[in-house]
Write a protein that binds this DNA or RNA. Structure first.
Lengths: 211, 211
DNA sequence: GTGTTATCTTTACGGTGTCAAGATCAAAGA
DNA sequence: TCTTTGATCTTGACACCGTAAAGATAACAC
């Protein structure tokens, strides 16, 4: 089953025994969280899904937290891509900001298990401060910043307010996402409708303009 | 150590062997979560804290989820009390609503571990719909409703908007609380300052009035 | 005093994360 | 081609976890 010629069929990653166990673990781990929630996750289940022994992951991650962090990085990339796609096109700043919020909420509406995983279990660090030199910014927040700055400048908001206004907007969409991701919350209405109500009633985090 | 006369010193609850193990478990469980976070919680640690064997809790709770739910009820009561206290006095509706938001955020700022515990781990059900007959409302939201309705009527908002506006306000304060409770988020600024910025810039979830 | 019954302990089981030792095997060097 | 090397994976062990079953304990009713 493992001839020497097999090297011709290698994937792009290292392929010693398994082929690409590291990425396989990350993908199966994410699938497991989607299937069973963060509470149903275990290192041994992921290993079993990948068809390897329970200790095999330790050749690629020093502990379960490191695997979770790699999974969170992967999900965060998908999340950021989803936000980026939502503002493709030539929207006016206000419209782009609204679409960003809609995409943010929709992402967690489609994957409720990602919310507690990303923000309470993954162990990843999210840097908001602009003053910590060298630290890479949190990609989803960077998308917010890019779009928000464009909006704020078009409205004459002083730059000193940028960070606080961005955090205010983020808090708003994050709050909707948080509530709809909470397992125990029962609401018969539509969260996107709540979000539309917010957009239409002055909760759009900038000064009271009347469009 | 346990004479027959000891009955004179019983607490208000049942006191067979331990005295009041059920409540002791709840209180020590909450302390454990405050000390080590939701990840550091275990049934056996709580039992050890109470000085009983690891299976003793099963005389009072059918499983660990039931203990967690009882702990969440206890914390929710404290939380509701904190919200109620924030609006004691004779505030105008807008001021009362602002104070509610401040108290909501402050509660989780002082106890960050409570957020993931209450909203993602406890298993308690939070009912927002007004149409589910018989189900008790979620107490903190009921405080919001009481104060919000007073505000909305004073502003002539149609009753049909009440639920959505309340959810909008809740989302906003919940979002701030969620962000500041996330273990991985690093922000050198003050969240209460962010909240004050929101209050001053039209994010107060009602139509654009100018005080 | 006797019996009842809730409460608590002991023991055991499978599942979990983690570590150490050994087996496997692709690649590199002779 | 043979050997060596080192990354990768397996096996086995350990402590901790939630949970169930069976027995001990002791407060209460009679």
């Amino acid at each position: 089953m493992s001839r020497s010629k097999k090297g011709a069929f290698i994937l792009k990653e290292t392929n010693y025994h398994h082929g690409d166990l590291r990425n396989t673990l990350i993908e199966n781990g994410i699938e497991l969280i989607n299937a069973e929630g963060i509470g149903g996750f275990s290192l041994r289940k992921v290993a079993a899904r990948c068809g390897v022994s329970h200790a095999a992951p330790y050749s690629h991650f020093k502990d379960v937290q490191e695997l979770l962090a790699a999974m969170a990085d992967h999900v965060t990339t998908r999340f950021t891509d989803s936000l980026e796609r939502s503002i493709e096109g030539d929207y006016v700043p206000q419209e782009a900001m609204n679409r960003l919020g809609t995409a943010y909420i929709a992402f967690f509406q489609h994957h409720p298990a990602y919310f507690p995983f990303l923000f309470f279990q993954s162990g990843i660090t999210i840097r908001i401060d602009g003053d910590t030199e060298g630290e890479p910014p949190y990609p989803p927040f960077a998308v917010f910043r890019k779009t928000g700055i464009r909006l704020f400048r078009s409205q004459g908001l002083p730059e000193s307010m940028d960070d606080k206004m961005l955090l205010a907007f983020w808090s708003l969409v994050h709050g909707v996402a948080s509530l709809l991701s909470s397992s125990g919350i029962r609401y018969s209405g539509d969260w996107q409708e709540v979000w539309q109500t917010i957009l239409q009633s002055g909760g759009n985090t900038h000064e009271n303009d009347r469009a």
